[in-house]
């Protein structure tokens, strides 16, 4: 029995150490990918810890606001997740956020949670070349036409500055 206990204890320490390593890997380091816009921002639309813990509830709540009530200037939107967290490859094209190793999928595969958003939603930011989208460039520019994105003249929110900056880069053409 004593011998077994020793082995067990050793195994326990080993497993515990491995878990610790793994968890620090997630907690201490950021999952934000380097080539994305998000890498240049201090935090997301809410403090990082809040977003990590609650982003799914925020998105679910606000998706209902958007789809059902037509409220497009919600604080949280999947289009913004994609817009900010998509990483560009060497050729300058966006990588899908749900591709292996990218922002969304890296955490989701780590915690083994199914990521079903992108069965229907676009996985990369829209590159404005076509004229068919809501953000088309002919005609006078309206801030609201950014659609899902927040418009800069909305009431002050937590990370309004970052957002305004972000939107400026998005719209700057």
């Amino acid at each position: 029995m004593n011998r077994l206990t020793g082995i067990r204890r050793f195994a326990g320490v080993l497993v515990g150490g491995a878990l610790l390593l793994l968890s620090t890997g997630v907690i201490s380091e950021t999952a934000v990918t380097k080539g994305s816009k998000a890498a240049g921002l201090d935090s997301c639309v809410a403090p990082t810890a809040v977003m990590r813990r609650n982003h799914m509830d925020f998105l679910k709540h606000d998706r209902n606001m958007t789809v059902r009530k037509g409220i497009r200037d919600t604080q949280y939107s999947l289009a913004e997740c994609v817009g900010c967290h998509a990483e560009k490859d060497n050729a300058g094209a966006y990588k899908p956020v749900n591709a292996e190793g990218q922002f969304c999928s890296s955490c989701h595969s780590y915690v083994a949670v199914n990521l079903s958003c992108f069965q229907c939603h676009r996985k990369t930011p829209e590159v404005k070349s076509g004229s068919g989208t809501a953000m088309k460039s002919d005609g006078p520019f309206q801030p609201e036409s950014l659609g899902l994105l927040q418009s800069p003249d909305q009431p002050v929110l937590l990370n309004r500055d970052e957002l305004a900056r972000l939107h400026a880069t998005v719209k700057g053409d």
């Binding site: 509830d57 925020f58 709540h61």
Partner: peptide
């Protein structure tokens, strides 16, 4: 708590 936070932290009520 998250639900409570949501109700206070959200944007305009302008919609359809």
């Amino acid at each position: 708590a998250p639900g409570v936070m949501l109700t206070v932290a959200n944007a305009s009520e302008e919609g359809a």
